[in-house]
Design a protein around this nucleic acid. Structure first.
Lengths: 218, 218, 218, 218
DNA sequence: TATGAATGAGAATTCATTCAT
DNA sequence: TATGAATGAATTCTCATTCAT
């Protein structure tokens, strides 16, 4: 097919397209992995979701494994980027904790794919993280901030002593994660829809109570 | 082949063979599903794990989907059977809570397959529970017991008011579940092995503190 | 299991049961083969249709091939038995032909399985007939009768000369067979239901006209 | 690999490759279905017949059912294309009928696969036609032509009145079809080879006699 | 960069048949 | 005679991946 020079794609545009294609593919892959897990995800479906040729996935991401790793890295990068906006330091300790609980909850709610991606990563014993070059950046800066908040609260006499930041961080995540990640089985078992707006509000209130109840000095 | 009547296999034994085969297959399937998820599990590998013919799986369980459902039902039946042994009612309220936290933790530790099975079930939106005839029995009787414990503790003036049993039950599960289910990614991120014996002890202590800290009246 | 002598099955009854079981299995096999063809027929389904154990089929009929042969032989035996009732000899020639056309038509109508069994047999190049011990009896005695009828009619000056009995026999069968055996595709193509009662009447009338129109001297 | 522009494969040729592969697969599938029926046909063998990868069959035709439908459609398209060449209109009525009988006979003789494909289609109650988008084109234009021929012949006083074109069309087909489709059982039963050249000639002569004998006014 | 065509290795499932009693 | 348990060899279909341009 002869190309009219005027409509020929310039190198810069091609590059931009390349990045755009990669981003589109990555999002499609994320959705596919999130919906079906690593084992259940289909390369064909990803390409279809992306509206791009399947061969392109291999061109850019080599294979399914590496693609999953890239998706995971992206997911971590996203949540870390959001955490950075939090500025817990500027809040009084108790408010900082409340904000952290709410943030965690809302992030998981807004990004359900994050939960299933983590499940898949763990089903595979996190080998996709171990192979990751950006592993270093995965650790949340929130841990340090949380430690600082706890120290301040304790200095105030407001918080109890001996609270470990990592443990608390995991606990906050766990309180939100389990409810949302397992909402289908829980809803089936309890015979009520845990994702109803009022149920969600109740859960956030409960979680906040648990965390503050635990941390606040008696 | 002439058979001595005394050593002849009695009908009961023949029957038991079928049941034994099914039990063996079910266990093999459970392990396979737990290790690889529903999508990643291989029928071949299950048969191999069981030391039985692959065809037999279809003979007894029809297909992969129904097999997974049976495995799930079995997993729930197992944990419910254990819960029944707990007898929380006989303990003072605070001790009862401590015991529940410890039980949850220890059960998950001893049955890591339960966690990944639940993850798989939820990835598939719990459709295997909806199709289950034994769904009724899945609801934990612990919920009622826990509600009673909470009422008693509150009557004592020992516990705070307004604690919802379902929320607390989910929270206790979540505190344990997230740590164990996601231990691979967490260990990678924090750069330490969360499954070390001391780490496990620390976690149980922390969880107990959180729950009691939340529940005990200030 | 100990057996009360009074309820013990006597050898004669057992034999009767054996024959009964075989007959039941044969009918179930016939229906299954007729519905799905030799390739599509399922041994399991036959046993289910018969309400007997699948193993019995092998006990009595060795394997699928021999079972099909037995079914075919039975089918031919049935139609030959019916043909014997016809007594065409006793009718005037033209009436005899009319009766033969009607008989063929009605038999095919009443025994649709006969048509599909024949189709299957021919798909397999009739190798099940070649292996049959009763092949001799398969040839219709009607051929001879038909030849006699034709000779008489010709002697009367009523029928044309040179009509071959075998050709005519095949033609009569073909006129009925094609319509009924291919009624699904024909109905789809012509957009009308060829199995409606009036359509069936019309067909028989047409067939009779064709045969008489051909045979009757101008 | 640098490519001389002159020898480079043009897009049209690439396209044709796909079409060529599909055509090859379709032919192989037709032969396989014709030889073994829908139930007995093997996807593996088709691929082998075609000299192409088995996976390609699924790539182009989705599954066995749809492949069979395509084969059927093709078969009908072929015979309709041939029928179009007949030009019966240009012949005197009696000659037109003779030509139609001969055409039907010769087409079935030359395309034995057509007969077994139809048998398979009917065994499955023509559901493959019902799902077909090209069903519309399946109705033979010959019906209209035949009706016209009959009307002309009748107007001449040459043909009898009241002959239905559809019935006659089916009869002509049936006279040829039954003989050829069931030739194996018939040959076995009559103990002579119905496919011998002289036998074939005799049959065509007989069929022609039957049709003309029926149609020609007494 | 982008794409349609093609493939080998597997995966779930099926099926006729045999075992053992 | 009758039956439930068990099996090996297919069989259809899937899937990640590569070819060729």
């Amino acid at each position: 097919m002869v190309q009219d020079p005027k409509t020929a794609v310039r190198p810069e545009d091609r590059l931009r397209d390349a990045e755009r294609s990669q981003a589109i593919l990555l999002r499609a892959a994320r959705d596919e992995f999130a919906e079906f897990g690593l084992g259940g995800a289909r390369m064909d479906r990803m390409a279809e979701r992306a509206g791009l040729n399947k061969r392109l996935i291999y061109y850019y991401f080599t294979d399914k494994e590496q693609l999953f790793q890239r998706v995971l890295e992206q997911a971590y990068a996203d949540i870390r980027a959001q955490e950075k906006q939090l500025n817990l330091i500027e809040l009084p300790p108790a408010q900082a904790l409340t904000a952290l609980v709410a943030f965690t909850w809302n992030y998981y709610l807004a990004h359900p794919e994050f939960l299933t991606l983590l499940n898949s990563a763990n089903l595979h014993k996190a080998r996709h993280l171990q192979g990751s070059a950006v592993l270093q950046e995965l650790n949340s800066p929130l841990i340090d901030t949380l430690a600082l908040v706890l120290r301040r609260g304790q200095a105030d006499g407001q918080f109890r002593a001996g609270v470990d930041a990592v443990q608390l961080y995991i606990s906050i995540a766990g309180l939100a994660y389990f409810y949302l990640s397992n909402n289908h089985t829980l809803s089936a078992i309890f015979g009520r829809d845990l994702m109803q707006p009022t149920a969600l509000q109740d859960r956030l209130a409960h979680m906040t109570d648990v965390v503050l109840g635990y941390v606040l000095a008696a």
